[in-house]
Simulated assay, not measured.
Amino acid sequence: MSASYALALKAAREAAGSQHYPQGALYVLATPIGNLADISLRALHVLSIADALACEDTRHTQALLRALGLERPAGGWIALHQHNEAEASQQVVQRLAAGGRVVYASDAGTPAVSDPGARLVAAVQAAGQRVVPVPGPSSVTAALSVAGAWQADASGFVFGGFLSSKAGERAAAVEALRHEPRAVVLLESPHRIGELAKALAVLGDRPLTVGRELTKQFEQVQTMPCEAMAGWLAADAARSRGEFAVVLHPWAQAQPSDAGEDLLALLLPELPVKTAVRIAAQATGGHRNALYQAALRLRGEDASES
């Protein structure tokens, strides 16, 4: 442990030690997504007082704790990952029932968002036991904060996480995103980022921001049209390395012309929505997404539920 983390542990005790940390509670704790210095003082203190630590990969988390100058006895670990979450959750519930403080940490970032943890939290709550968040690093909010993905008339964002590894399901998901007016955050691994880029190319000139290796030494943030992402990756082999957070920007919500809406009104009683929108866009030169929203409005449907 470096002298800087010794100082951090001392600061953690002074800054967070006087707060209340109930026993018999699960602490859902965010860990750094690449930069160890992103660990919070509160997280350091909670890790130091925990009776047990549940995590995706005990070896990974052991290495993290050693780097921070923390040690945990062999009996203080619970392996809890996507393949055993239901069974391991019951071990956590038993520890909590005995009055222990249990921390759950995924390999990186905030648990129970894309990583395991949601089933654990549900099991603990069902047992009538307390869950305490210890917030911190998240690739989702980190990517959004540097994407500049803003539109005056777009509200909020959608977390899409990892799309399916199956080509057909991935293509269907991207097609659904074509009609999503809000920003969308997607996550991807290095061995599948090329396939995601190819799938997103159908969205044409809609902007996206690629966040690669966020918070790490070789961090890269680049904004480009969806159709350019595959070429951008291919131009440099290093660009396909590391973990990715991709922000699909809100599409500019152009208003359909009166002619476009009038044509839609004639087509919708006879045709499916997508077919009517395609024909109206081709005939009037209108923006397909704007016409799609207009079609849902004309049919009395909620665009947010489509």
Rank of each mutant, 00 (worst) to 15 (best):
M1W: 03
A3L: 13
S4C: 03
Y5P: 04
A6I: 14
A8V: 01
L9T: 01
A12E: 03
R13D: 08
A15Y: 06
S18M: 08
S18V: 12
P22Y: 06
G24E: 00
G24R: 04
L26M: 04
V28A: 10
A30Y: 02
T31N: 05
I33M: 10
I33Q: 03
I39C: 07
S40P: 10
L41Y: 13
L41A: 10
L41K: 14
A43K: 08
A43Q: 05
A43E: 05
L47N: 00
A52E: 07
C55L: 11
D57C: 12
T58N: 06
H60T: 15
Q62Y: 05
Q62I: 07
A63W: 00
L65K: 02
R66S: 13
A67L: 14
P73E: 11
G75I: 11
G76P: 10
G76Q: 10
I78E: 09
I78M: 08
I78S: 08
L80K: 01
L80H: 11
H83K: 12
V93Y: 01
Q94N: 09
L96S: 00
L96Y: 00
R101D: 06
V103K: 05
S106Q: 00
D107F: 10
D107Y: 12
G109R: 03
T110L: 11
P111A: 04
P111R: 05
V113G: 07
D115A: 08
G117H: 05
A118V: 11
L120T: 02
A126P: 13
Q129E: 03
R130K: 13
P133D: 08
P137S: 05
S138H: 01
V140Y: 05
G148F: 05
A149E: 01
A149G: 03
A154K: 09
G156Q: 11
G160T: 04
G161K: 03
G161T: 11
F162R: 09
L163E: 01
S165A: 15
S165E: 13
K166S: 10
K166C: 06
R170V: 11
A171W: 02
A172N: 07
V174H: 07
E175V: 03
A176L: 14
R182T: 01
V184D: 06
V185L: 05
I193S: 01
G194D: 09
R206L: 07
T209I: 07
G211A: 12
T215V: 12
T215Y: 11
Q222I: 04
T223S: 12
M224Q: 11
P225A: 11
C226A: 09
E227Q: 15
E227V: 10
E227Y: 02
G231L: 09
W232C: 07
W232T: 06
L233N: 00
A237V: 13
A238R: 11
R241H: 11
E243T: 07
V246N: 02
V246S: 04
V247Y: 01
V247K: 00
H249S: 07
W251N: 06
A252E: 10
D258G: 14
E261N: 10
D262H: 15
L263S: 05
E270A: 13
E270Y: 09
P272H: 08
P272T: 06
P272S: 06
P272F: 12
P272R: 03
A276L: 06
R278P: 02
I279L: 15
A280V: 04
A281Y: 11
A283Q: 15
G285C: 13
A290T: 09
Q293D: 15
L296N: 04
R297A: 15
L298G: 01
D302V: 14
S304L: 14
S306A: 15
